[in-house]
Amino acid sequence: MDVKLLEAFRAVVDHRSVTAAATAMGVTQPAVSTQIARLEEAVGFPLFERAGGRLKPTPEGVLFYAEASRVLGEVDRLQAATMQIREGQSGRLVIASHPSAAISLLPPLVAAFVAERPGVAVRLISRHSDVVSQLLPTESFDIGIAELPIDETQVEVRRYGMRCVAILPPRHALASRRVLTPQLLAEYPMVMPARSHQVPNRIRGVFSAAGVQLNGVVEAEFFATLCGLVAAGTGWSIVDPLSAQNFAHLGLVARPFEPAITYEIGAFWRRDREPSVLAAAFLEMLDNKLNG
């Protein structure tokens, strides 16, 4: 049944006049009359009778009005939902991320994202980078974020690089230095990132090239743990700048490190399917954050 016929019928009942209904709908009176005639032909019974020069619903018309109003209410809700989905204001977004991004990068982004979209629900899954990459074929999330390299056989990847910083405990002897180097840091205890990360090999490489030895005393899995250990005075470390910023309230002293060590991550999604409206909007927000 044509929804426009139901809308014309509802308007005539509400306004008790074809003329008034036509004005409210922004169409001509003959157009509304034609729609009512078509609807009566379709349902097989009269919907109106004239009383005192005005239209009055028949008993059958009253019953039909109640059902038509319910259906049109559902149509209105569907149209509103369609608009929200089209504009990225409704739906569910699932993001699977490695722990460092889940702790330091994503919380403010997700907070801003849902603040602009009250009808959107977001679920965050935190796993190691290799696990995140393995989850995607199961379609358990919309966007994955992991350390590079990422197997690109089934995914599209956007790459991001962040220059790492050296972090020191409060009141460290090198806190007054503007730039830190392997030669300056070699004699001091270091909190090392776990060997499963990409960063430790790069740290060892630059120290070896400088001809000095690392003095690693503790090894930890996550950048957040490294920051906590450094703040407690265990030693210095090298982390991504977002982690250093996120834990600055612990009194950490962050300084540029030379030569540069880049921490690389990637955001990815299924190659055989375009990102949803919500996923595309979040990816744009991520781009602005990491490339801005």
Rank of each mutant, 00 (worst) to 15 (best):
I143R: 01
P170E: 04
A81N: 12
V122A: 14
F64Q: 06
A111L: 13
K289F: 13
V62E: 15
A260K: 02
L39I: 08
T225S: 06
G52L: 05
V75A: 10
R271N: 09
K56P: 00
R86T: 15
L136G: 00
G61F: 03
A281I: 07
L93H: 04
L226S: 04
R50W: 02
P189N: 12
A20E: 13
A115T: 10
S33D: 06
S129K: 09
E187K: 14
R123Y: 12
P256W: 06
A280P: 03
I143M: 11
A101F: 05
V12H: 00
R204Y: 08
S129A: 15
Y160A: 06
D151P: 04
W236A: 05
S90V: 06
L242G: 00
A96E: 09
V217P: 01
R159D: 14
Y65E: 04
L47Q: 01
R271E: 15
L78W: 12
Q213I: 08
W236N: 01
A81G: 04
M1E: 02
V71W: 04
Q79R: 13
A175M: 04
V191R: 02
Q35S: 10
A37E: 04
M1D: 06
L250M: 13
N288E: 14
Q213V: 06
V217S: 00
V191M: 03
N215F: 07
I125Y: 11
G211N: 05
A146Y: 09
G53P: 11
L229V: 03
I36V: 11
V131W: 13
P46H: 11
E258P: 01
M192D: 03
N201P: 05
F223I: 04
S129Y: 12
V230E: 00
G26T: 15
G266K: 10
A8Q: 00
T153D: 15
S140I: 12
S196H: 15
R273N: 10
L180D: 09
A51I: 05
K4H: 09
A248D: 00
V157P: 07
T262A: 02
F141E: 03
S104N: 08
H128Q: 14
Y65N: 05
L63D: 07
H249W: 06
V32L: 02
E74G: 02
Q29F: 00
K289W: 03
C227I: 02
R70C: 03
T225H: 10
E264F: 03
R123Q: 13
A80T: 09
K56R: 09
G235N: 06
D142S: 13
N246A: 15
V43S: 04
P108H: 13
A254R: 05
N291G: 03
L214K: 07
V217Y: 02
L290G: 07
P99V: 06
I85D: 08
A31M: 08
I203T: 01
E87H: 12
A20G: 08
H98M: 15
